[in-house]
């Protein structure tokens, strides 16, 4: 079963047509510049649950698709 990604321009396509793009987020509580740089470079939220992400439709319109995916099930919540 391939995960289908809903591309607003091209329609639903298998995940293999897309390139995964992470949306990094540094917690607001990190105010020290060095700590922020370290966090941005290396640390990851890696949530077990819904996360916002971007997918580049390499095999189609070559545009970024924004969506939310549940990392526990791969269910795509919105587009």
């Amino acid at each position: 079963m391939s995960i289908l990604i809903p591309c607003p321009h091209c329609g639903s396509r298998p995940i293999q047509e897309f390139v995964y793009g992470e949306i990094p987020a540094v917690p607001d509580t990190l105010t020290d510049p060095d700590a922020r740089d370290l966090d941005r470079a290396f640390m990851r939220a890696n949530p077990e649950g819904v996360q916002a992400e971007a997918w580049f439709h390499l095999y189609g319109c070559r545009r970024w698709v924004r969506l939310e995916r549940d990392t526990r099930t791969d269910a795509i919540q919105s587009s």
Binding site: L4, G11, R13, P14, Y59, G60
Partner: peptide, 21 residues
């Protein structure tokens, strides 16, 4: 194709066909 082809005509579609864009 691992995706649904359009049924109306004319129609444009793009995606992986035999693994090629």
């Amino acid at each position: 194709c691992e995706w649904e082809l359009p049924v109306q005509r004319p129609a444009f579609a793009q995606g992986a066909v035999a693994g090629i864009a």
